[in-house]
Write a protein that binds this DNA or RNA. Structure first.
Lengths: 124, 124, 124, 124
DNA sequence: GTGGTCTAGACCACA
DNA sequence: GTGGTCTAGACCACA
């Protein structure tokens, strides 16, 4: 599963947030199944070449939000499906969609034009 | 023109950038014509209830990028159209489109689904 | 407001959690009003003689849970009343009450006895 | 007796302590009689689906505190009643009562309200 | 001035 | 082995 993670320290996005979002995506996307064991914080930190605290912070948020369960002294696991997880992938996209649409409308770009633009970039 | 501006201080996006992007959009979208007079920094700051420094920073960037011209002792105006402005609306959308697509793909959302989602939000 | 805070580093309870719980109690208890400005992280850290990161962590959680709003470059404020805040004081007590009752019942202590015990300790 | 035990690994309370407190409660509450034979560490661990080391740690503490007696090659038993055990149920409740009261007072919940809340949860 | 991020390193509790 | 907490200190973005 480590191989599915990657992080860009020089992106504007904080590392802990990149990691958080990636793991959420993996869970919602189905690459990570409920009850599946996660690599330890130290393993992820070493693999990504970042400080364990940074990884821990991402994991902490995932726990707070109910995506991950920590078990004392044992590796963490993907939480069993609950209300939180009913989140469909599409609802995660919503903020970005709204943001894009409001900019497009302000620019006078039509829905049709926008869909063409998206189609063009989809393949890359 | 003030009425066209609005800003969300609790959004993740820095205020100065929100303001900058909105003004660019207004120019590219045609709501702001070349040579049109802009409100003063103070007026905008008061209207938006933000710190004048913040407005100033947005305006400074717009000047640096050639969107706005400052004239000694007189109100600033939208710059006369030059190379810089040939920017089409669609190229301004590009970063957000790329960002959206990469998240959608990670979530396993198909292009068709994405277009449906966008269609749904377009009307609001 | 600083004077309302205090923290015991040698308690088993993590400092950041003590602080978190105290601030929630102050909000729910009404000592902190909505929109009220909070001391800065650095001020609290200095007053409590703990590391700013520790304070920051408590505040971060409060933000995540909607109790506090952070505003870029400006002091944080108690969030305007929302769903989150509808929490009555009594619902915050619930976990401890349940825990106490289950131990009492296991010990064969009756409800009446338990209430006497609580009455005895209340004055102290 | 196994059926009287249960443990919640995702509770904040360490498992070994949950187990310890439960067994003490069973002894003080009279469900476990003096000289009564206890299940082996392995049996308890298997039944509760926890690490045997964890059970062992709880049992060790019970031995240290005189609640349980270990006998070479034979199952452990509940210790014969001695001074240690004169502990009344109510004194075991004391820490939790104090903790609950201090939180209630900070939240501005009155003694009367608290007793109503406890009454409500008692039946469940 | 405000808060946010990250690191390195120490030390602890739990299983 | 696992994760949790805390510190000291550096550096950055925003208002």
């Amino acid at each position: 599963m480590l191989a599915l993670l990657n992080v860009n320290p020089s992106s504007g996005e904080p590392i802990y947030r990149q990691l958080h979002d990636q793991i959420v995506s993996l869970i919602v996307g189905g690459q990570l199944q409920a009850e599946e064991v996660l690599p330890s914080v130290r393993q992820m930190a070493e693999f990504l070449a970042v400080n364990p605290m940074t990884v821990s912070r991402a994991v902490q948020q995932l726990v707070d939000q109910g995506w991950i369960e920590r078990r004392r002294g044992q590796p963490s696991i993907v939480a069993t499906r609950t209300d939180t997880h009913t989140t469909s992938g599409s609802s995660l996209l919503q903020p970005k969609i709204k943001d894009l649409i409001s900019q497009a409308q302000q620019l006078g770009v039509s829905l049709a034009e926008l869909e063409v633009l998206i189609g063009q970039h989809w393949q890359e």
